[in-house]
Amino acid sequence: MIQLLRIELYKIFRRPRTYISFGIVTAITFVIQLAMLTDGKGFVNFALSGVNEQFDIQGNILNGYLITYIILQSLLIHIPLLVALVAGDALAGEANLGTLRLLLTKPISRPKIVMAKFLSSFIYTVLLIVWLAVVALFFSLLLFGKGDMINLKSDSFIMILQKDVMWRYGLAFAFAVLAMTTIASMSLLLSAFADNSIGPIISTMGIVVVLTILSNLELPLFTIIKPYLFTTHMIGWKGFFDDPVPYAAIGKSAVVLVLYTVGFLLLTVFYFNKKDIKS
């Protein structure tokens, strides 16, 4: 299994395409940081207008911690695409390339191959999020400095002391890994159905976009199904920046995500194990 996983990782990281994701994450991060360097004050004034009427907030509001939060907020909903680039390609890409049939004539069981594909996609996801953490946090702190972090929710204003920020980011990134692993397992399932990787990548994005919209619609019907959609729980990382941290809700979200991940994975193994390889 280790050998198989090593080979899967080797295939992923020897391919130039893989590094596009890391490049995109870096580029978007820098673009947001640049935009915040030039326009950040106006943005903050706009966002704080509700509070500024009554309170006078002074100091380095636009610090690295807030910038990182803004980056995560705008970037994390697009990371599924980058995860799908690898996970959605894992089986379908090999089918398309024609290497899948050669791989499957080797004396390895199909569930093991699926597991290796999943684990390698997972490791890629972890590295991508770690990379995001490094680029977003490190460079934002370098460019914008430290300070207490403010967090604006639609109905509340939260201030977090700077000594109280880093552990939240640690947990938030860990949660992001979990959320993206769910995406990876869904992508892998779609990948098992397809014989070319465009389908799973686009379907992954389509599903994420549609479910995210449903997750955010304030209609009674959707309110009922909302708790069952994994997209509702994918933004659970934000909970770590609330006060007090809603551990129960985050825990519930994490459980939902884990259940989805395991479910997708089992379906993939079950389906792929019986699939006729005609590619």
Partner: peptide, 19 residues
């Protein structure tokens, strides 16, 4: 599994990892 290790095969095109 062990039977497959007794077999070597090319099915249709010999597709490899081009990169």
């Amino acid at each position: 599994r062990h039977l497959l290790s007794k077999i070597g095969a090319i099915i249709e095109r010999p597709d490899m990892y081009g990169y």
